[in-house]
Design a protein around this nucleic acid. Structure first.
Lengths: 189, 189
DNA sequence: TCGGTTGATGGGACCAAGTGCCATAACATG
DNA sequence: CATGTTATGGCACTTGGTCCCATCAACCGA
């Protein structure tokens, strides 16, 4: 029998999500998470920087968004580039098999301020990444800032809607529709 | 001689700011902060919920903004109500004598991710408070959301500019001008 | 097949954040 | 002067997080 079972960090994530749902985030210790995953506290902190990060691990999102913004067609406006990126990221990261996990994750985060704090920070990083990517496309600073802000907001709202969906709705389409709504809203201010 | 010196939490805040500047946030312990203020660790946690909160204490901002948004003139648009609130809050909270403190505080926060995380959370709370206040003025949900977002962004940018100012510039005017810039920017998206 | 190297894990000591409880000293009030 | 209230000090305790070292599985070359 192999002593090292495969996918240690995935096991840790699932164990953590289970326990957070059962007893709540605060009443769950890192040792308990590790034990349920068949590992130890030491190993937990080798895979995640801290207890919160176990729910924010696969953190390639900011980079992905930035890449896709830069790869958008030459003539595209700032918002079009953002829409392009949302669509691409939707296909890559928001696959149907991840929807249930996202739903459970959202509920746990919504129940705990400490986790919301981490999520807020990730949101800032996301906006910053998009802003910089737009600026590399020679979008003026303020325009980049506002477009990124609207993009992040659209992402957040779309994520909320998507994770509540029952059928296999396409995240990209949801996000693009949301972004258009936000755009018309901002024009009517 | 009185054993209880006045303004314990103010002393704690200043002691903390000093130490954070000297050795950095992480290398400063709560005990050191308390001792420099002539108090103890126990007392520190009686005044602040945690170590980070010592820099985010006077946290009436969200409430103030919400109040002023609701008190804005009847016929005002969402953005005008926000501008009204920014102006009022500027007079109340961003007084000239607080400018130097704000500058030092900003530098410390900018140097530490843990503090940026807390700031991000406060930012979310601010946006949420403004959104809800706008909705109580019968602003449609999406409009309220976008207007609050722009307001929060304007506040952030204006705060940055203001804390770097040397003269006694008026925060309210700065914020309103910033908000107008953001509005025209968003119209040209 | 064997022995050495590499990388992931286990384990324990350790520090600091944060909680809870209780004693006590200062303040206010009669 | 006696009494109750409030802020503080002090201590024990749990937990998150760091560091270091021993160990064990897997891989690799001879």
């Amino acid at each position: 029998m192999a002593r090292w079972q495969p996918y240690p960090s995935e096991r840790l994530v699932l164990a953590a999500l289970d326990l957070f749902e059962e007893r709540g985030y605060e009443k769950t210790t890192v040792m308990e998470i590790a034990e349920r995953a068949g590992l130890t506290k030491s190993t937990f902190f080798r895979h995640f920087a801290d207890k919160r990060e176990v729910l924010f691990g696969g953190d390639t999102m900011a980079g992905l968004l930035a890449d896709w913004i830069e790869m958008a067609p030459e003539g595209a406006t700032a918002l079009e580039a953002v829409a392009h990126a949302l669509d691409a990221v939707g296909r890559q990261a928001f696959t149907p098999e991840r929807r249930e996990f996202s739903f459970r994750r959202r509920a746990v985060i919504g129940a705990n301020p400490e986790l919301q704090e981490r999520e807020a920070l990730k949101g800032l990083a996301l906006t910053a990444a998009m802003t910089e990517a737009l600026e590399r496309r020679d979008t003026p600073a303020l325009t980049a800032c506002v477009a990124a802000q609207l993009g992040a907001l659209a992402l957040k709202i779309a994520y909320e809607r998507w994770s509540h969906t029952l059928g296999d709705s396409d995240f990209g389409e949801l996000a693009r529709r949301t972004l258009r709504e936000l755009q018309t809203t901002s024009e009517e201010l």
